[in-house]
Write a protein that binds this DNA or RNA. Sequence first.
DNA 1: GTCTATAACGCGATAGAC
DNA 2: GTCTATCGCGTTATAGAC
Lengths: 187, 187
Amino acid sequence: MFALKGFKGATTQAIADLAGLPKANVHYYFKTKKDLYNAVLEDIVVVWKDDAEAFDTSPNPTIALTEYIKSKMHHSFTRPFGSKVWANEILHGAPVLGDEKLGAFLSAWEKRKTLQIKRWIDEGDILPVDPHHLLFLIWATTQHYADFEHQIKVLNGNKSLSRAQQIRATESVIAIILRGIGLEPTN
Amino acid sequence: MFALKGFKGATTQAIADLAGLPKANVHYYFKTKKDLYNAVLEDIVVVWKDDAEAFDTSPNPTIALTEYIKSKMHHSFTRPFGSKVWANEILHGAPVLGDEKLGAFLSAWEKRKTLQIKRWIDEGDILPVDPHHLLFLIWATTQHYADFEHQIKVLNGNKSLSRAQQIRATESVIAIILRGIGLEPTN
DNA sequence: GTCTATAACGCGATAGAC
DNA sequence: GTCTATCGCGTTATAGAC
């Protein structure tokens, strides 16, 4: 409901209906609407941390980035709601999450990734690009398939992307980004 | 206010305060809150149509894409609110704009661009990428700097990107995307 | 734990004087 | 055109029986 309607737009009544409960029971489990929303945000952050795995475990940048983009795209198609709630929260300046929590989550996590990218650059594995902007481009593009799902659907003749189209999208994104930093996509 | 708070979250009182008017006057100029919101959306669409200019007027894909990305990035930095309102509207399934208006706006406009990209591919100017996904990647990345402005700011030590950083961002994005489709960025 | 009923309040929109 | 005052409704949250 938060993904569909935003924080204010998602009424506790609608949330309760969706859960098949009387409205009062929602307030029994979560004292306030904000508490519930915070719980949803926490949930998303947990899922996203896993996607970063590939970055630290893969032997070379081609595999690392291919796998990272693949899993981000996969989550965009299978769990678009989380991405949407996150996008909505950031769009409005993280009013509920707050800057400290947002900063704590992002900084540590981003630093590890930019360092890995710098290592690849120093070793001559990829072209010298600004690591931050490479990451932003990957996040933006992969999450676009979740956040702008509706726009993509409309452009696709009002049909959600088929499984085959999802694969093609993933391959297209991987190909452009890898070539963009001087790597050749595998197969 | 719509960019900051969403449709429901932006109260007419807050809008009126921002405009320095009593609330009733807002209703004098715009009968309903929805009417005002629609006017805002119309405004954004007009701005965006101009950015597409480069696509039809440039002599080759390198210039066309460089100029297109440049103007999209420029608008993301100078007018982030429009992009945010649009993102918010799409995120929630275009409830106010409606699917017909959204489709009408997007389809005609996207078709022209994909045809141009196909022409470049057919003439061997760029690598054979799926035109739709190339466009999505460009939109997603350039608009990310507007829509996720807050996240970028937090990652930048709570400072908005300086003019120099904006230029570096634009150059980085252009370099990755052009190389991604087999073009060499100029200078 | 689950539910009905309702309190308390903020919202969009309007009435009507100026 | 501009403003104050207010209506009517939908909202979050709670009280209290079961």
